[in-house]
Design a protein around this nucleic acid. Structure first.
Lengths: 128, 128
DNA sequence: CTTGACCATAAACGCTTGTCAATGTATGGT
DNA sequence: ACCATACATTGACAAGCGTTTATGGTCAAG
């Protein structure tokens, strides 16, 4: 429920901040890159990524809390995978939102706002 | 060379981290949301966004350094706008990159790596 | 030239975040 | 029962980041 409304109407840009926070860190980005190839367990990443196991575990916990990855426990191993429903949903919602604002006719309230909107007269706007 | 190569071949996920860092902060996200509607000057944002002018200026400088927005000086005003070439380029490159890794046949080196790849024998893999 | 609006920069502070080291738990093999 | 592997969690520390405050510089108008 948190991510994106199913039908049209997406929220504002703030709704996507948690999603993008997943990609704005080098370690997380590499982890996600790894998971894009499919399901992986933790010990598969510590090697190639050259980061400590607790660090991988920590970032995976963040991604899990953000709802971007899912966890599966099998014996001693813990397998992580990308939650594609959430991933695609947020991404599509974001793209759709950008497209909509981009194609917005002129601009919401530019003509009569313009800077001195606070408590100043917009004279230079009419003058120019 | 830094952002995205024009033809196919995109770099790794790390190349997109600077791009996503622009969206992972609430204030910046709102600024970008504002700029999606078209070119705006600084004083147009301080009001609706309810943030101080130096703060807007600071984040705009970050976005500018990241190459995501462009600056235009007109009299006392400074107008900012999104660099769509860069925006679309990074976004398309990212989407393409995700798609490619997602459709990668089985998985690069999973079959013979699997955890104890360090200095351990992968017996349980053959056994199971 | 002075005033006021517009904007950028610098310094300082507090908080979040990333990272490491150590510890704890569970599973599986011997 | 013992040990090794796999993983999570905790606490502590450092670094980065966001925000505020203060200051200076530029432009237009009077």
């Amino acid at each position: 429920m948190k991510s994106v409304k199913a039908s049209g109407e997406t929220g504002d840009m703030l709704d996507y901040v948690p999603f993008f926070k997943a990609f704005c860190n080098s370690t997380r980005a590499q982890i996600i890159e790894f998971l894009l190839g499919g399901e992986r367990c933790v010990c598969e990443m510590t090697g190639p990524l050259d980061v400590s196991q607790p660090l991988v575990s920590h970032h995976l916990a963040l991604l899990r809390d953000a709802g971007l990855v899912r966890m599966r426990n099998e014996g001693a191993r813990t397998y992580y995978s990308i939650d594609w429903e959430r991933f695609d949903g947020d991404l599509a919602g974001f793209l759709d939102y950008v497209q909509r604002l981009r194609n917005a006719p002129p601009a919401p309230g530019v003509a009569d706002s313009a800077c001195a909107v606070r408590e100043q007269s917009p004279k230079e706007l009419n003058a120019s």
